[in-house]
Amino acid sequence: MKRRLRDVPGAVAMLLPSMLLLAVWTVYPLVKAFINGTKSCDSTGTRCTDVGWQQYSNVWSSREFQDALAVSLKLALMTVPTGLILGVGLAVLADKHLRGIGFFRTVFSSTVATSVAVASLVWVVLLQPEIGVLSDLFSGWIPSLKNPGLLRDPGTALPAVALSSVWANLGFTFIVVTAGLQSIPRDLYESAYVDGASSWRRFTNVTLPMLTPSLLFIVVVLTTRALQAYGEIALLTQGGPNPEKSTTTIPYLIYGENSLIRNNLGLKSAAAVLLFLVSLVFAVVQYRGFEKRVQYAR
């Protein structure tokens, strides 16, 4: 009891900077956004009237939000498992003491240096149908690269965006998994080897369980990035192709160039808060899903 209280002044002092920062720049705007979501405001966002919490359910059930939610979820389904598998695959491939492995590791982690803007512009240069590098090189084999173009075909636009995201996130997943692999005690492998476990069994029985914390981290981060995808949409497809709007994610629905609610603070806030709640549900579900494995790994 005494000990618990003795630390209190120190703890308060040490937590004060971060608490102030979070209060002003995260908690306050979050609360404010919740409230703004119940308002109807003019274009400048200053003269507002109250319309109540009803606005949240209206936005949620509107067809635009539902369509955008479906696109965001599809994008997550395309990028998260692929990103995870590629990240683990590359990290395992490069987790050997070979001459020159440092070079390959640098290559595999290189895309961590690209921002969303940089990565997306790279893929515009590659995929633009008329003058894109890939479109010209491979149109003989894959005609749709040129006509109508991957980014213009409602069937392939979202996968093409996913491709650019997976590439951009590869460096990040690679680094996190590599760090996870290096923290696995070598003696675990040795005893499995002595027990006669095949390399595949060593991978499933030792590597994967021990990697679980890293994997959980990656899944949560990649899901968040997919649900919050905006820059890649703005630069690659602008939410199109129309009329399907096959790549209009929730953030693009809110902030995109052709957004119907750009200058409508109330609807914008409501949609953003709903996006936050969806991300929250995912994080909780994922954490719960991994919890058992994390325990087991210990």
């Binding site: 971060s18 979070l22 002003v24 720049w25 995260t26 908690v27 306050y28 705007p29 979050l30 404010k32 956004a33 703004n36 966002g45 968040t224 649900l227 919050q228 905006y230 953030p251 809110i254 902030y255 603070l265 914008k268 806030s269 953003a272 808060v273 996006l275 936050f276 991300s279 929250l280 994080a283």
Partner: peptide, 20 residues
């Protein structure tokens, strides 16, 4: 509470923070 703030997307906070 600290960890939960990680999940708040910038899309939610950016409008209000700009005002601040």
């Amino acid at each position: 509470a600290f960890v939960a703030t990680m999940l708040v997307p910038a899309e939610v906070t950016v409008v209000v923070n700009r005002r601040t």
